[in-house]
Design a protein around this nucleic acid. Structure first.
Lengths: 164, 164
DNA sequence: CTTAAACCGACCTCCCTGGTAGGATTTACC
DNA sequence: GGTAAATCCTACCAGGGAGGTCGGTTTAAG
């Protein structure tokens, strides 16, 4: 298995948020119920998304999460990267603090690290396919946005972007 | 980590075999010494390659392994597939006995399995990048074929490194 | 008949995945 | 202010797979 269930859950969570209006927060419990996922575990998953700046949150009653950007502007490589850590095809691909990915193998006896060539290509293939998929595509594929509720007056009042 | 060390070791093993003449078998011990890998573990790795028909073997003294086809005709997706089993980005991608890969998720409540769209693309990206890389490329990258020995001396125990 | 090698299967240890548990804190509403 | 709903945080835990090891059997060359 290439990706862990954190990625699966996290992507589903993002899709769920993308289907909702960003105006009012969606609680984790609602998502957990809708997707049949354990709430306590989802908390850990969403924490990664929040730290990556992909979702924002409001605490307290009627709190919840929402996308920090429109789904059209969220590429899935950001999402998966936030959930899985670095996308490394092999042990020797380690992130240093910058963006660079490097191979820790010694260039043994003058020859290059041949497997690195292969894994680099694989990594490129993965990242490309993730970069060219937006969250909006997945939202659309899963049935699109949830229709805005008619009782707009009430809900819009609840909008409650914390008026600090 | 996307691929296990079986893939790393197995690819290195294949490259080593690709650097050798297919005329005489190369022992696992020679490869283990050259690459610094545990012999007993390599046995398990090479067994997968043999069962996949990628290498052939001869038992007994002076036995060993060789590529069953020229390196130019071996695409790396075959190799990685043999080593790792199926290349599935996510739990729900399971192989049945055919080539088809399917998602076990129910199409819940009429909506399609949206994550499947994403993982399918990722899988495609991986497989494409593996398919378009041949073993010969990696052999070449790692310094190319070992020069054919003229004498009948036991050359194979010492994998001669081209002296820079 | 000794030696080098492939072949085989059982075992073993560590670490990560996939959770659970229990709380502390924040906020809306009455 | 009290209570309920929610985020947030840390610790813990069981299971399984990764990454080997070990011991032995069979095969073939010299």
């Amino acid at each position: 298995m290439i990706f862990s269930s954190k990625a699966e859950y996290g992507v589903r969570l993002m899709i769920e948020l993308g289907r909702q209006s960003p105006e009012h927060p969606t609680s984790l419990k609602a998502i957990a119920d809708a997707e049949g996922l354990p709430l306590a575990y989802l908390e850990q998953v969403v924490a990664r998304l929040r730290k990556a700046g992909l979702v924002m949150s409001a605490r307290g009653a009627h709190g919840g999460y929402w996308l920090s950007r429109p789904a059209e502007e969220i590429a899935m490589d950001e999402v998966v990267q936030a959930l899985e850590g670095s996308i490394a095809p092999m042990e020797c691909f380690v992130h240093d603090h910058t963006e660079r990915v490097l191979c820790s193998h010694q260039p043994d006896a003058g020859r290059g690290c041949a497997t690195k060539l292969l894994w680099t290509r694989v990594q490129g293939g993965i990242i490309r396919s993730l970069q060219t998929t937006t969250l909006a595509e997945l939202v659309d594929f899963s049935g699109g946005r949830v229709p805005e509720p008619e009782s707009a007056a009430a809900t819009l009042d609840v909008v409650s972007v914390p008026a600090a």
